[in-house]
Write a protein that binds this DNA or RNA. Sequence first.
DNA 1: CGTGCACTTGAAGTACATCAACTAGGGTGG
DNA 2: CCACCCTAGTTGATGTACTTCAAGTGCACG
Lengths: 242, 242
Amino acid sequence: MAVVSCEQCRLRCKPQFHQFGDDELAFVQTLQSTQSSMAPNADILVPGEAKGLFTLFAGWAYRYREFPDGNRQILDFLLPGDLIGLQATLLDQTQYGVKTLTAATVCVLDGRPLDEMFREHPALAHLLVRTLMQDQRRTDGQLAFLGRRTAAQRMGYLMLELFDRLDRIGMSNGTWCQFPLQRRHLADALGLSGAHVNRSMTDLRDAGLATLGNNVLVLLDRARLEDFAGYRALDEGERIIL
Amino acid sequence: MAVVSCEQCRLRCKPQFHQFGDDELAFVQTLQSTQSSMAPNADILVPGEAKGLFTLFAGWAYRYREFPDGNRQILDFLLPGDLIGLQATLLDQTQYGVKTLTAATVCVLDGRPLDEMFREHPALAHLLVRTLMQDQRRTDGQLAFLGRRTAAQRMGYLMLELFDRLDRIGMSNGTWCQFPLQRRHLADALGLSGAHVNRSMTDLRDAGLATLGNNVLVLLDRARLEDFAGYRALDEGERIIL
DNA sequence: CGTGCACTTGAAGTACATCAACTAGGGTGG
DNA sequence: CCACCCTAGTTGATGTACTTCAAGTGCACG
């Protein structure tokens, strides 16, 4: 496939992302070596194996941890612009994996070591930390929710959060968006059984809040859904994209 | 109280923390303005209010998020050496608070803006990101656990994790350590009711795995507890302390 | 026209919450 | 010294949200 240079990248221009100066952009371009296309359900990072740093350029992916008993927990969904593998790059032992959910394209960031970014572009490092804090805030929300809300509330929360993240990168359409998660992904993300995911979805549909079908999520009544799920939209501010 | 300078800080010398060069140490000293002692159960950061950046110097604290219904979820426990308030400093809206668990002392980091660290000490910035990734890994574990394990397993996991964190800063004693969490803190951290925390503790004690009493945690059979809780000790590597 | 896979639905079991009654220290005032 | 309360923890009874298992549906693909 044709490699898209950072200068011409359509994703990078979205208002969600910090717009680099010329020298910063040139530097980021040198971080990147190639791009790589992947099938749905393919491994980007395998737990305990080869490390790698990537930017998700197109498609959906998810970060997960698996237990000896075969159970797994989805920690996070990854959308275009998200960085993949920073934890694996900086720490010795990591226990998470990353898989594609849909067909996806990643930019491979092995052109030069990340150290140089800290030395030569402190503003980028600062933005990176800011982006990490946004991710931490999101994780805080998940943690708070897993412990304290019902299955249907958790579902609604996840829907709203993903919708808003898509919206920020121009991938939503007013009241609906693509939503390629299957039942088992929802179950693994929300700590539920597949059967109960189903019941919760039925609840949300019957209550006229949201429906899910054909890989499309429709928010039927956003205001009431927010209220029901205890979700509050947050002003994210700029993120970094490498 | 007497202010301890960074050069004489006993905490900073622990092998857990990266040992700074002289110029770095001098820089970190200028970040700090004063130290402040706090009573147990006092607010360090109030959700949605004044921002501030601190290093916990002595004592225990916890980071929490509260719901409109009065429920709250403890996101993380903070031990000496941990940084407090980075998310609040870098983002506009934050919804978490931090309270002391015991009497505590914090170093107040408002001496000069954090930007200078990125510009003048890129190695510190790099270490900061590494430390944040360690925290993310820990949070990953919590997320995976909340969704997928029983009450007693979650309790055991939390005990082992806190024990090991204490151990790394020299605050454990072989098989036991201080453990100032009350029942309601455990409940709020693990997503349980107070009553069930109690039952789970009884289970762990009856199984000969761990006991809790008088603010002391005793690991009766660490190997079996690790096995039971699905906990694996991780080599953390160096953290940064500001 | 079967064969397989993702989803749906129902019945029964389990792990947890909730509530209420009780117990055990720890001041405080007399 | 005791009578008193106040709070933190303990225990039991009951309700509920979820899991698990099993049978059934609908659609995609050979």
